[in-house]
């Protein structure tokens, strides 16, 4: 169905601060997009605009709808987890499932039950009696049972231990995601999402500073562990970032000639975290 999200000149101010400033991007269907930025970069504001939870300036269309004005219709096809803590604490698991089943036309109870059967979540428990990990499992089970075109996750694994985080993303990738679905995820725990993302959107100080598909990133950027004797030569290729490692200097190059780089040291694909630091620092410089 092509473009799921189109943002043109998206803006939003809180008092004198520009939370979003002329943000432009597109998200196509069947992608897993990571919206990544430091704290206060505007990630959550951007998501809230997409979900119709906040006012914005400029043009924004999600599934061809204006999220601010057509929020109710949008929510038929969009699902989101704003934060693991948002399930109502007073409700029983069974009540929650009954309610979502009644409220959401695209909810399939048997899928939800299937996921829950694998977890330790008991049907008779109240949400407040569950551990943080179980609440996440419950929320994920609810969301994955909804046949949505777009799933938005805002820091979904905040406060979970590393095992839970891994499991969360693995389940999402292996059992939920397919070509008909699109996932937009924000996080600053970049390491855990990098292997599942198809696209990267870096945001800093309300602006998009990088918008690229993962395979583009792998083509364009290279990280080289430069041997000490090649330092000067390496610097002449104008690395976009440089940091010290164990006896080596790691440099990040953009669009540089591979063959030339091979001579300077071992060439590898930069991690999203390294790329993130380099791009943000470059944007701020």
């Amino acid at each position: 169905m092509g473009e799921l999200i189109v943002a043109r000149g998206l803006g939003k101010s809180f008092g004198s601060t520009r939370a979003l400033d002329d943000v432009n991007f597109r998200v196509e269907s069947g992608r897993i997009v990571g919206l990544i930025g430091p704290n206060g970069a505007g990630k959550t504001t951007a998501l809230k605009a997409l979900l119709g939870l906040t006012r914005f300036e400029g043009g924004l269309s999600v599934l061809g709808l204006n999220p601010h004005l057509q929020r109710h219709r949008l929510m038929q096809d969009v699902c989101f987890i704003a934060d693991v803590a948002v399930l109502p604490r007073w409700i029983r698991v069974s009540q929650l499932i009954d309610f979502v089943a009644a409220a959401h036309p695209r909810f399939r109870r048997e899928i939800c039950e299937q996921f829950l059967a694998r977890s330790d979540v008991r049907r008779t428990s109240r949400v407040r009696e569950l551990s943080k990990g179980m609440v996440t499992q419950l929320h994920l089970a609810l969301v994955m049972a909804i046949d949505a075109k777009l799933l938005v996750l805002d820091e979904p694994t905040l406060g979970l231990d590393i095992l839970m985080r891994r499991q969360f993303y693995e389940t999402l990738l292996n059992e939920y995601f397919d070509e008909q679905r699109t996932i937009l995820v924000t996080t600053h725990q970049v390491e855990e999402v990098e292997h599942i993302l198809t696209d990267l959107l870096f945001i800093d100080r309300g602006r998009i500073v990088l918008d690229a598909a993962m395979d583009q990133v792998q083509e364009q950027y290279a990280q080289v562990s430069v041997r000490p004797e090649h330092l000067a030569a390496a610097r002449s290729h104008q690395p976009i970032a440089e940091r010290q490692g164990l006896g080596r200097t790691h440099m990040l190059f953009r669009g540089a000639d591979r063959v030339a780089l091979e001579r300077l040291g071992e060439v590898g694909v930069p991690s999203v975290a390294d790329l993130f630091v380099a791009v943000i620092q470059g944007a701020r410089a």
């Binding site: 929510m75 987890i81 704003a82 409220a103 929320h139």
Partner: peptide, 13 residues
């Protein structure tokens, strides 16, 4: 308790 964000994720007006 911020559960409004959950309720608002459902297609309820």
């Amino acid at each position: 308790d911020r559960s409004v964000l959950f309720w608002k994720s459902l297609p309820l007006s």
